[in-house]
Amino acid sequence: MSRGKKRFLLRLDPELYEILEKWAADEFRSVNGQIEFLLKEAVRKVGRSKKKQSMLDNDET
Score class of each variant (00 low, 15 high):
33 G>V: 06
2 S>E: 12
33 G>N: 08
47 G>A: 07
28 F>A: 07
44 R>E: 04
53 Q>F: 11
29 R>M: 14
60 E>W: 07
45 K>Y: 03
13 D>T: 01
30 S>M: 10
5 K>A: 12
34 Q>G: 10
17 Y>W: 09
28 F>I: 02
15 E>D: 11
8 F>H: 05
29 R>S: 02
20 L>P: 02
40 K>G: 02
21 E>V: 00
28 F>K: 14
22 K>I: 01
15 E>H: 09
53 Q>D: 08
19 I>R: 11
34 Q>W: 06
58 N>G: 07
45 K>R: 13
15 E>I: 05
50 K>A: 06
38 L>N: 10
42 A>P: 03
20 L>M: 15
14 P>A: 01
10 L>K: 09
7 R>F: 01
58 N>T: 02
16 L>T: 03
42 A>S: 11
57 D>N: 13
55 M>Y: 11
20 L>G: 00
10 L>A: 12
46 V>F: 00
28 F>G: 01
20 L>Q: 09
8 F>A: 15
26 D>Q: 13
7 R>S: 06
32 N>Q: 11
24 A>E: 04
53 Q>M: 06
47 G>Q: 10
48 R>G: 08
44 R>A: 00
54 S>W: 02
13 D>H: 06
55 M>S: 14
15 E>N: 08
14 P>R: 02
23 W>E: 10
39 L>W: 07
35 I>G: 04
21 E>D: 13
11 R>D: 03
12 L>A: 10
58 N>H: 08
49 S>Q: 15
9 L>N: 15
5 K>H: 06
21 E>F: 07
32 N>K: 08
57 D>R: 11
46 V>S: 00
7 R>G: 03
55 M>H: 12
54 S>K: 08
6 K>C: 06
58 N>V: 04
